[in-house]
């Protein structure tokens, strides 16, 4: 059974790589079903913990796959799960980008680029609303976000880590002053 784990990881995550349209969150439910319900690799509780860790750690949220692989099969599992989730979609994207960038300057390309650019901005706006609504920070999230945007517009070359540090400090400060759950 354990010898089959690398193959099973591949069989689970390769298909998810190619159906995860709209980003990693769209496959979350499916991954949970496979890892918890079908294969019994982890419990529901472990899944929730690994999910929280994947959000707290740097990198895309899809690193959850890395964690599941690591949890059940160590470093080999981590590597296999990561490659299985990222390689197929990356190859597809590379193919599209190749065609796309090769035809730069043609009229249809310019139309596609000019037409898709505002859609991209709209998606970023939608993402911001979703994150601010789901995140636990409430009004203070908006204040810190607007403040950080203001600083970054005023001084575009300032290092973002400095802003992140200030944002984290503000939240810790506010929560320390007002008791742990008064603000959120």
């Amino acid at each position: 059974m354990r010898d089959d784990l690398p193959l099973a990881l591949l069989a689970v995550f390769v298909p998810f790589s190619l159906v995860s349209i709209g980003g990693g969150t769209s496959i979350l439910a499916g991954v949970q079903h496979q890892a918890v319900g079908v294969h019994h690799w982890i419990t529901t509780r472990e899944f929730v913990e690994l999910f929280a860790i994947s959000r707290a750690a740097p990198g895309p949220g899809s690193m959850l796959a890395t964690l599941i692989g690591w949890h059940i099969f160590g470093w080999t599992g981590a590597l296999i799960a990561t490659l299985a989730l990222f390689v197929p979609s990356s190859l597809l994207c590379y193919g599209v980008a190749l065609v796309w960038n090769r035809h730069r300057g043609k009229r249809w390309h310019t139309a596609l680029e000019n037409g898709l650019a505002p859609v991209g901005i709209g998606l970023v706006m939608a993402g911001v609303i979703t994150v601010l609504r789901v995140g636990g920070g409430g009004l203070f999230s908006w204040i810190v976000a607007l403040g950080s945007a203001g600083v970054l517009t005023w001084r575009p070359k300032i290092h973002p880590l400095l802003i992140f540090l200030i944002g984290g400090a503000v939240f810790v400060g506010v929560r320390a002053l007002s008791g742990v759950h008064a603000v959120i």
Binding site: A56, V124, G127, V128, V131, L132, G135, G136, G137, F140, S141, W142, V144, A145, L146, G147, S148, A149, G150, V151, L152, P160, I163, F164, I166, G167, G168, A169, V170, F171, V172, V174, R175, A176, I184
Partner: peptide, 15 residues
């Protein structure tokens, strides 16, 4: 709390 603050500051980059 620190993670929430960092996340909020990161949203500023998107703004």
């Amino acid at each position: 709390a620190a993670m929430d603050g960092v996340a909020a500051a990161a949203i500023g980059m998107l703004l």
